[in-house]
């Protein structure tokens, strides 16, 4: 029974723009894959990198971060801070055995329901192509490899 791999994705939205975009996609009945579960934050600036790591460690295959377009943040400039954190996060997760393509940042204004739905659909396919993450398993494998390498040197 070979079933297609269905990725599980956590999406973070900001209350003022991207969450309203998701609502708008709903009101307009625009369809996107059910693989994504959205978490509402007040602002993309609220996104603590630990949220992303938590999601990935609990089994998510990808994380989509969304917020207001630069210059349109309800709290004026906090989405820039989200962008900074995102860039740094990408560098960090690469070292932790996660492909940076699994965490994606997309801007969506409150009127862009269609665009958000499209971005979600695209992202689901991208993650599907990357395959399952199973990060704790991967970490365990990395750990085994490193332990073995160390033992070799010591021996």
């Amino acid at each position: 029974m070979s079933e297609q791999f269905e990725p599980v994705i956590i999406g973070f939205t900001c209350n003022w723009c991207s969450y309203r975009a998701a609502d708008m996609a709903g009101t307009a009945r625009i369809k996107y894959p059910p693989n994504i579960r959205l978490v509402r934050l007040m602002c993309s600036g609220r996104l603590d990198p630990t949220f992303v790591l938590k999601a990935l460690s609990e089994g998510a295959d990808g994380v989509l971060i969304t917020g207001c377009h630069p210059g349109e943040c309800h709290y004026l400039e906090q989405n820039y801070k989200a962008l900074r954190r995102y860039r740094l996060l990408l560098k960090t997760i690469a070292q932790m055995g996660i492909e940076p393509e699994r965490v994606k940042l997309v801007w969506a204004s409150a009127a862009e329901g269609v665009q958000l739905a499209r971005a979600i659909t695209t992202f689901v396919e991208e993650i599907r192509a990357l395959g399952p993450l199973r990060w704790p398993l991967r970490l365990a494998e990395m750990d085994i490899k490193e332990t073995a390498a160390v033992e070799e040197v010591v021996a």
Binding site: I10, V39, F51, A55, E58, A60, P136, A140
Partner: peptide, 20 residues
């Protein structure tokens, strides 16, 4: 937020899904 993420993911996988 962390609890919400946990809750969302706890029931997003098939019953026999092994993570660790």
């Amino acid at each position: 937020v962390l609890s919400q993420i946990e809750g969302l993911l706890a029931y997003s996988f098939p019953k026999d899904f092994e993570l660790v």
